[in-house]
């Protein structure tokens, strides 16, 4: 925003303020449309973010590939040292 000093010497800025004060408001319908677009796009973005990776994994599995999310979960388990799904090792690590 321009300072008061620069406004005093600048008729363009004074005109801008005058026109802004005299101009009617954009209609409530315009506001509703803009905010409606914002909400809808936000919602679609969230849906895509949540489900798109799952859907990709399912499609990949459907066509014979490996589910990426499943793979990455396994890799994460390995990094974390969690072997919950591994039934070849006895609880407590004792060998038979």
């Amino acid at each position: 925003m321009a300072s008061a000093d620069s406004n005093n010497n600048n008729s363009f800025k004074k005109l801008g303020e005058l026109e802004e004060n005299q101009a009617p408001q954009p209609s409530p319908q315009t506001e509703r449309n803009v905010m409606g677009t914002a909400r809808n796009v936000g919602f679609i973005g969230n849906v895509l973010e949540l489900y798109f990776s799952k859907a990709l994994g399912m499609l990949s599995a459907l066509f014979g590939g490996t589910d990426i999310t499943e793979e990455s979960e396994k890799a994460q388990d390995l990094r974390d040292g969690s072997f919950d799904n591994d039934n070849t090792i006895e609880p407590g690590g004792r060998a038979n």
Binding site: Q25, P26, E31, V34, M35
Partner: peptide, 11 residues
């Protein structure tokens, strides 16, 4: 942001 700029843009 709409509130801050809509009147200026409209004008």
């Amino acid at each position: 942001l709409y509130q801050r700029y809509s009147t200026k843009v409209f004008s």
